[in-house]
Design a protein around this nucleic acid. Structure first.
Lengths: 263, 263
DNA sequence: ACTGGGTCTCGTACACCGTACAAGGGCTCT
DNA sequence: AGAGCCCTTGTACGGTGTACGAGACCCAGT
């Protein structure tokens, strides 16, 4: 274990995964262990949000003092880092393997990833902060890489393609989950919240001008079902674009190679 | 002005842009005004990071007490929200218009957006938190929308395509800027930090297995110039994929329409 | 000239945060 | 009985955001 103060002095090593990872025993009178802490933290994060989680409240939930947690963990950040990896584990990798060819595997993976981000609104801001090299995160990364490998793209292009797909999913999931969180905070359904937001824009004279060209588009969208459907449609179509993009790049690559050969 | 406590009770309206936005005067003895506060905050955020900014430190930088800031602003969050919109203003929209056809406009816009995110590492986490409906953010959104409009995609697909491109840029910029931040924190060059990270993985026996298939890929990358070049190459190629994807979808759409007509 | 009221700044105070440190309590082993 | 480890706790420190009330200044109205 490392004191928080020491950790700060060596930020290159500032990941729980880059040092002693063997959990400390849970035979104590409180029946605590790292897993129970992390699982409880995840539940509280889901319910109350990232900013509301405090060591004292988490400890209270476990019928224990705040300082007890520090036996199992160096830092509050460590708990979040463990939590992040744990929810990476919620992605169903077996389902990905079962999906068949790369197009379907990427789609299944991306959808499950997105759903996970939306289910845990604290994930996107947190995941961005750490190296995400826990076992579950790495397993997901490997599955992504396997899928991209099978596209037939040249090796040196595969990381770029991985970025294109999964940075998109990350960004999309981030925005979507923040929207959900805001709606919930306001105590509205997503549909109502969407309607209110649009109305608020419209009523602001300062925005009317800039929004003018967007007007038709907003009306068009408002007429197409509820917000959840819109999120789904947009996501699906964006995935279509990405898959089509990869296919096109592959075929360009293939054609270029054949031209070289016949010449 | 609204008290922070009241703001919390009505989170639907919890954007500085959705209420009285007229700045309060700066004729006071300290020569303060909202703009000066926000500009200083941005500088401090760039230098010290999001978590290190406190009202007291920001106030000290302006030779003033913390509570003085609350004359111009309801909440610390408001300052961040203003800061976010201000740096959206750094994106050079005139250059976008000058770029010509939609492909180039999208590329210029995406690159400038990405650079902005990297220049201000606190942006991605912050931007995700607010509605981003300030004047500069809206202007950027409009430019994006104009570019996508000219692709020839059907109206109801344009928002999806916008997502695909700019959620990707957001995700990519987020990861890239976090990487830079970590390297800087560790006091290393990005190249050294990258090397160290890879080495740390390799040395962890627990990861060796999962990383095995990635091995070649990592070696391949290590042999291609420095980290900055890798970031640039990956980004450019991902944009190629996205543009190719949009083109392909457009031509599929066109073909489908023609089939319908001739039948 | 005096006064009242707005505009701005400050001092104090509160509740809460993460966590360092040292002092235990309970258990097992000798 | 005593030593030593595992785990929990109490207390304390230095920080945070911000509510509240008391001023200081300036300008308009009488």
């Amino acid at each position: 274990m490392v004191k928080a103060a020491d950790r700060a002095k060596n930020p290159a090593r500032s990941s729980v995964w880059l040092e002693d990872r063997t959990p400390r025993g849970g035979g104590g009178p409180a029946g605590l262990d790292r897993d129970r802490i992390v699982v409880t933290a995840i539940r509280m994060l889901d319910e109350e949000g990232l900013t509301k989680l405090s060591m004292r409240k988490l400890a209270a939930e476990l019928n224990v003092t705040a300082m007890s947690l520090y036996w199992y963990v160096d830092t509050k950040d460590d708990i979040i880092e463990y939590a992040v990896d744990t929810v990476y584990g919620e992605i169903d990798l077996a389902a990905v393997d079962a999906a068949g060819e790369w197009r379907d595997r990427i789609r299944v993976l991306a959808l499950d990833y997105r759903r996970m981000l939306v289910r845990h609104p604290w994930m996107s801001p947190s995941a961005g902060q750490y190296l995400n090299i826990g076992p579950h995160a790495i397993a997901v990364g490997s599955k992504i890489q396997e899928a991209i490998r099978d596209t037939g793209l040249p090796l040196d292009r595969q990381p770029s393609a991985m970025s294109a797909v999964f940075q998109f999913v990350y960004g999309y999931g981030t925005i979507e989950s923040q929207f959900e969180r805001r709606a919930a905070q306001a105590g509205m359904s997503q549909d109502d919240f969407y309607g209110e937001s649009i109305k608020a824009f419209r009523d602001e004279p300062a925005f009317a001008e800039v929004l003018e060209p967007l007007g038709d588009l907003l009306d068009e969208r408002a007429s197409h079902g509820n917000v959840t459907e819109i999120w789904n449609r947009d996501f699906d179509y964006a995935m279509d674009v990405l898959v089509a993009g990869i296919e096109t790049m592959v075929s360009r690559e293939t054609r270029a190679r054949e031209t070289r050969r016949t010449r």
